[in-house]
């Protein structure tokens, strides 16, 4: 069903669609190209590149941690926000809408600085934790909008059918609406995941030693700017491509009940 694309609002990398599963699609070419390039550089010029790869490994771990933790937290915040946005309780609705409005009105980088330094100053939170919280708060608002769109996209008849059987609003949401909304939500949520992964590079400006920051440290010691950022870009590309593949596999799994 092609209607899964209707609420595709993300700005992340394109998720491979099922139509181009063949060998010569953009995803396969990109991943093989990126891996081959990394392999070639490390073998052909082990002097800077091997050292670089080892040096960047710590950063990859940090980037991975920030991404996974932020995605999990942002999903929880997003679900709560999305439910708040469709709630008939005016106070909850207003609270959720205001949160979304404020977050969407401030650039991510400014939010990162603000939350990071605010947390650091008043709560003395660890650097990595502060970065994860900042990313989650920001992406939670975006995901809230995706969840809201996914929930409202489900036909009103579904709610009516559930309510007429005797389910209350909460049961209707969790037993009938959300399990269906997942399928419509997943592509745009996947886009948010990928966008989030790429935006974690912003935390390098804070004192978090992610992939990009490790690259900056390496290049400022060695002055090998071109070599460093070539490797950094390739690693980001590989991670992003793997994540996007994961999302598309999940998407295929979830669509088992769709009309033939």
């Amino acid at each position: 069903m092609s209607d899964t694309r209707i609420i595709d609002v993300g700005e992340g990398a394109a998720i491979p669609s099922k139509s181009d599963w063949g060998l010569f699609n953009a995803w396969t070419i990109s991943i093989i190209g990126a891996l081959a390039a990394i392999l070639y550089l490390v073998i052909a010029q082990p002097n800077p590149y091997q050292r670089l790869l080892v040096y960047l490994a710590d950063g990859v771990v940090i980037t991975f941690q920030v991404t996974v933790m932020s995605i999990l937290c942002a999903c929880v915040i997003g679900l709560i926000t999305g439910l708040g946005r469709v709630s008939r309780n005016k106070a909850i609705n207003l609270l959720a809408s205001t949160y979304v409005e404020i977050i969407r009105g401030i650039p991510l980088l400014v939010q990162l600085f603000y939350i990071y330094y605010a947390l650091g100053r008043f709560l003395n939170v660890h650097d990595l934790t502060a970065a994860i919280i900042a990313m989650s708060v920001c992406y939670g608002a975006y995901m809230g909008e995706v969840f809201r769109a996914g929930i409202t996209a489900i036909d009103k008849g579904q709610t009516e059918a559930a309510r007429s059987l005797g389910f209350n609003t909460k049961q209707t949401m969790f037993l009938v609406i959300l399990p269906q909304a997942w399928r419509t939500i997943l592509p745009p949520v996947g886009n948010e995941f990928i966008a989030l992964l790429k935006d974690t590079s912003l935390v390098s400006i804070l004192a978090v030693s992610d992939l990009l920051r490790r690259g900056r440290e390496f290049s400022s010691e060695t002055f090998l700017y071109f070599e460093t950022y070539t490797m950094v870009a390739l690693i980001y590309l590989v991670i992003t491509l793997i994540l996007s593949k994961g999302v598309s596999i999940m998407e295929a799994r979830l669509s088992h009940y769709v009309r033939r």
């Binding site: 036909d155 008849g157 579904q158 009516e160 059918a161 559930a162 309510r163 007429s164 059987l165 005797g166 389910f167 209350n168 009938v176 399990p179 269906q180 399928r183 009940y257 769709v258």
Partner: peptide, 19 residues
């Protein structure tokens, strides 16, 4: 909600749960 359990409803558009 408990009263609705006594009232079965059939809709024009079926409204079966597709999942």
């Amino acid at each position: 909600n408990s009263l609705r359990m006594e009232l079965g409803m059939v809709f024009q558009s079926f409204n079966l749960f597709p999942h």
